[in-house]
């Protein structure tokens, strides 16, 4: 396995049902190792220890939302440059642009197709490292 191959994903999502679907989509279908956090605060506590290669985060969450969570994670030395992808309901182009400005390398529309989610993430990862 090359160093560039994506393996470890920190997944931040407040909805338990979506967590369950995404876990199967990412672990069983995609073969990734996933750490699930239910809030931005939890991600700040557990994020560094997990040492993710990619942060995959929901946008609308109670407390810290996706962009605020990413901003806070960026303050942690080991996560300062970790690539991030946001997942959010179909949004207007301007909102996508804002999320990209907030530090996301891609925005995946919700609801996602669980059978192709892993491949979508791999494609973004490959483009990012091309």
């Amino acid at each position: 396995m090359s160093n560039n191959e994506l393996q470890r994903i920190l997944f931040i999502e407040d909805e338990a049902d979506i967590q369950a679907v995404a876990q199967v989509a990412l672990e069983a279908v995609g073969g990734f190792t996933v750490k699930i956090c239910s809030s931005g605060e939890e991600a700040l506590q557990a994020g560094e220890a997990f040492a993710p290669q990619l942060i995959l985060s929901d946008v609308m969450m109670p407390g810290m939302d996706g962009p605020a969570t990413l901003l806070a994670l960026r303050q942690l030395p080991t996560l300062a440059d970790t690539p991030a992808i946001f997942m959010t309901a179909k949004v207007q182009p301007q909102e996508v642009a804002q999320l990209r400005t907030a530090g996301a390398m891609a925005v995946i529309a919700k609801p996602f197709d669980p059978m192709t989610l892993a491949q979508q993430i791999k494609d973004v990862w490959r483009q990012h490292h091309a």
């Binding site: 989509a25 279908v29 919700k110």
Partner: peptide, 16 residues
């Protein structure tokens, strides 16, 4: 969308 994502996602995984 949130419940629909879970429903479609679960069914999609079983279907796939």
């Amino acid at each position: 969308r949130t419940p629909l994502t879970a429903i479609r996602g679960s069914l999609g995984l079983i279907n796939g």
